[in-house]
């Protein structure tokens, strides 16, 4: 089990970043919450298509689960092809968000939670909140 978490930097104590395509860092943990891998987001500075590229990256890394704040429509379209489970609504640190996942406090999603280009504006103006249907 490989869980990808969107963060501001490396380590379990780093704050999470609620953007998917343009978060600076990804921390990958196992089902015990131990770090198995860390990586800077290669698409953080992409002029366009950051969500698509980030989805490609996360899937290429072999992640089974993604914990994020929000996910846009193009990223979701790309992520959906792989069967990765996506949960939104993380907050606090990387370790906090793993606990939120374990305690089933996050929202599993099948629909995008923000419009495209959301991450480029540095937040604000999105729909937010997720539209969970459960059933994963």
């Amino acid at each position: 089990m490989k869980i990808a978490i969107c963060s501001e930097g490396p380590g379990l104590d780093s704050a999470v970043d609620r953007r998917f395509g343009r978060c600076p860092h990804y921390v990958f943990v196992n089902s015990e919450g131990k770090i198995i891998e860390e990586a800077a987001n290669p698409s953080v500075g992409a002029s366009g298509g950051a969500g698509v590229q980030a989805a490609q990256f996360i899937i290429d890394q072999g992640a089974d689960v993604l914990l994020t704040g929000n996910v846009g429509p193009k990223a979701l379209a790309a992520l959906s092809t792989s069967g990765i489970k996506i949960y939104t609504g993380i907050s606090g640190s990387v370790a906090d968000s793993f606990s939120q996942y374990q305690q089933e406090k996050l929202t599993p999603i099948t629909d995008s939670t923000v419009p495209q280009h959301f991450g480029m504006r540095g937040g604000g103006g999105g729909r937010g909140g997720g539209r969970g249907r459960g059933g994963f």
Partner: peptide, 15 residues
């Protein structure tokens, strides 16, 4: 150069 294509192990998407 524009991330308009994503390729997975048995799938390809064009944006």
């Amino acid at each position: 150069s524009f991330n308009a294509i994503a390729v997975f192990k048995d799938n390809i998407l064009v944006f």
